[in-house]
């Protein structure tokens, strides 16, 4: 590992994985620290899922959400992708001295409405105020608890399985990149920030045995999730470029700044690996819901290129989708 923590250690890519494996879990407990989106804990009355996430973002308010709604939905989604029903959240605030109270109020209002929309309650919290310059306006940590009524939605993945997503790729990450680089949108583009527990619940209710894996492709985007799935596996995953739901605006910003939407963060998306024969049925269910209107099958699990995520491009050529190494910076090369 590097001598010092670099920005790239926080970007959801290879550097972060090294830090988690080589430092954090090694010391805190290889066995006890679970790597999945939530830890699954067995109690006498059943299974619960438990997770925590800390949110830092610039800007703290953006089209489609705030750091507050992000903090609620992010934790709700980490529980939901395990197949758990999210119930309770905590909220810890780290506030920078000088933050405007009106801003904090807006953020709290957006947290509350996100919690209401997701059907969860915020039941405990903590606040700290740090000296000016020691934090960037506001950092939020949320922890969440959900109950697992049925099975954990993790089953062996095999060739023939389908990969699907509930809508357009990269909206959140691209909105943020655009704001930071003084780009605007003529027709408006907003973050996709939304809770996924309703949609996931509907899918599992109709297809209780079909989902092999789910994850919310946040930091690091769709390509990073695919890389986690195929790591060390005897199968590969191929996406079809022509099948990817990507908005024009997302394509536009990506082209301008030299970034790839497959690596841009999503905050209201779930990527599913499902039994191939159920893919169309699941997409149909998703499309009947507002948060899944643009759902699509985007790829397949195959026996080709084991351990690799790859893209079949418009030309019919194939290229690998590597694990993102560091954060994406706007570039001109």
């Amino acid at each position: 590992m590097a001598d010092r923590i670099l920005a790239g250690h926080g970007s959801g890519g290879k550097l972060m994985n090294e830090m988690i494996g080589g430092l954090i879990r090694r010391i805190l407990g290889m066995e006890s620290v679970q790597l999945d989106d939530s830890a699954v804990l067995h109690t006498e009355t059943g299974k619960i899922a438990f997770t925590t996430d800390t949110f830092t973002i610039t800007p703290i308010e953006f089209p489609g959400g705030t750091i507050g709604s992000l903090a609620v939905n992010g934790t709700v989604n980490d529980l939901a992708v395990m197949g758990a029903k999210p119930l309770y959240l905590s909220c810890a605030l780290i506030l920078e001295e000088g933050l405007e109270t009106a801003v904090l109020e807006r953020i709290l209002v957006s947290m509350r409405s996100a919690a209401d929309a997701a059907g969860v309650s915020i039941v405990t919290g903590d606040t700290k105020v740090v000296e000016r310059g020691k934090a960037d306006k506001i950092f939020i940590n949320t922890a969440g608890i959900g109950i697992l009524e049925g099975m954990v939605q993790r089953r062996p993945i095999m060739p023939g399985d389908a990969v699907l997503i509930n809508g357009f790729i990269g909206d959140h990450g691209i909105v943020i990149m655009a704001l930071r680089n003084r780009l605007s949108f003529s027709r408006g583009l907003i973050s996709d920030c939304a809770p996924m527990n309703g949609l996931i619940g509907s899918v599992i209710a109709a297809f209780p045995e079909s989902v092999k894996f789910m994850r919310d492709p946040t930091r690091g985007g769709v390509a990073s999730v695919l890389n986690e799935i195929v790591k060390g596996a005897d199968f590969g995953i191929g996406l079809a470029e022509t099948a990817l739901p990507v908005r024009d605006e997302v394509r536009g910003v990506s082209g301008m700044l030299g970034i790839d939407p497959l690596y841009a963060a999503n905050e209201g998306k779930v990527l599913m690996v499902v039994r191939g024969e159920d893919a169309d049925g699941i997409v149909e269910i998703m499309r009947s819901l507002p948060e899944g209107r643009d759902a699509a099958v985007i790829g397949r699990v195959s026996g080709d290129y084991p351990g690799r995520a790859y893209l079949e491009t418009r030309t019919g050529g194939r290229r690998i989708l590597p694990l993102l190494i560091e954060e994406q910076l706007p570039r001109i090369c």
């Binding site: 003084r182 780009l183 605007s184 949108f185 003529s186 605006e249 536009g252 082209g255 301008m256 090369c333």
Partner: peptide, 28 residues
């Protein structure tokens, strides 16, 4: 070092213009 993209000029203001592509707007 040649990333460059096509956009359409919407408005001109002195030495800069508002350009648009794919619904993305930028002063150039």
């Amino acid at each position: 070092m040649c990333l460059a993209i096509p956009m359409t000029v919407k408005r001109i203001e002195g030495t800069r213009a508002l350009a648009e592509a794919y619904g993305v707007e930028k002063y150039v």
